[in-house]
């Protein structure tokens, strides 16, 4: 774990949009609007290769939309971004994934009626048996399939899911699904793993093991990780760099210590209520928002 004052980003200034020594993902002027609401408006962001970057911010800050945009799951209204030096702006999601930027989802997408091992095997890229005609000739893909299965089994063991390999993925617990989704993403051998709230809804007993897996991605496999998280303890524990979003913008970034010391960030955006049920005042605000959306729509009609 990087100690205070060491690591590759120790000398990087804790300010929004700051340049990093070896960025794997560079985002420039990306905006995404829904109706009149600006969900994402990021001037500049660089993600350092080989480290764990946390993306935090209050509900509705645009973190998931930002994930969707850079991974090709949603279109941007404007902006450019590069992954590993290649421009991937506007590229289809599956192509982005094949380049090595693989994401998971906030609501897990375990493929319920496929077995756990089939879920895993799906993750491998470049499968010869995935072509229509070659699928009909098993000799073309049997050997590769066995290799993939062996890799999948060893990953399942690592993620303590080995005993579930034959079960339907739909029968796993919420935490196990998170594990499965992360393991499945690794089947694609990604250089950059983007985890959308990997700990959400996970039973506390599993949290620690999940955290260890995330750290292992960096320390043992030298992959880059970006993850969205609400729990500040988790963020402090495993991340090398923290990016704070609010209202679609990046309002602060820095090492966990620097962000932790940034009283304004804590007060303004990470107040204790961010995960609590809506208060009455907030309910009022939500209602007002609905009204505003409706007003805007009728104006544009």
């Amino acid at each position: 774990m990087p100690a205070e004052g060491s690591g590759p980003l120790a000398d990087v200034a804790p300010e929004p949009g700051v340049a990093k020594p070896d960025p794997i993902l560079v985002v420039d002027g990306v905006t995404r609007r829904f109706g009149g609401l600006s969900a994402v408006d990021v001037d500049h962001l660089e993600v350092q290769r080989g480290l764990i970057t946390a993306l935090i911010g209050p509900n509705g800050a645009g973190k998931t939309t930002f994930f969707n945009v850079v991974t090709g799951f949603d279109g941007a209204n404007s902006g450019r971004w590069t992954f590993d030096g290649r421009s991937v702006g506007g590229m289809a999601a599956h192509k982005v994934a094949r380049l090595g930027m693989v994401r998971t989802f906030q609501l897990t997408k375990a493929l319920a009626k496929l077995s756990v091992i089939e879920n895993m095997k799906l993750g491998a890229v470049g499968q010869r048996g995935e072509g229509f005609l070659s699928a009909l000739v098993p000799t073309l893909w049997r050997v590769q399939e066995r290799e993939i299965e062996a890799r999948a089994d060893s990953l399942l063991e690592r993620f303590s899911l080995g005993h579930m390999r034959g079960e339907y993925a739909g029968s796993l617990s919420g935490g196990q699904r998170k594990l499965l989704e992360m393991a499945r993403a690794l089947m694609a051998e990604p250089a950059l793993v983007m985890l959308d709230e990997p700990m959400a809804g996970v039973n506390p007993a599993l949290t620690q093991s999940l955290l260890e897996h995330v750290k292992a991605l960096r320390d043992e496999e030298h992959r880059t990780v970006v993850f969205v998280e609400h729990d500040m303890d988790v963020v402090y524990d495993i991340s090398d760099w923290v990016v704070v979003m609010a209202n679609g913008r990046i309002i602060a970034e820095g090492t966990p210590t620097a962000i932790g010391a940034n009283k304004d960030v804590i007060d303004a955006y990470l107040g204790t209520h961010h995960d609590a049920p809506l208060s009455e005042a907030e309910e009022e605000r939500v209602l007002a928002e609905i009204e505003a959306v409706i007003a805007k729509e009728s104006a544009s009609d």
Partner: peptide, 24 residues
């Protein structure tokens, strides 16, 4: 749809059922 309470509620539910439900 424009003026009455039920009309506005209908459009709110169309727009985002979860948000509408959470707003009572």
């Amino acid at each position: 749809l424009q003026r009455t309470k039920i009309g506005k509620a209908m459009r709110a539910v169309s727009d985002n059922p979860d948000l509408a439900a959470s707003s009572g």
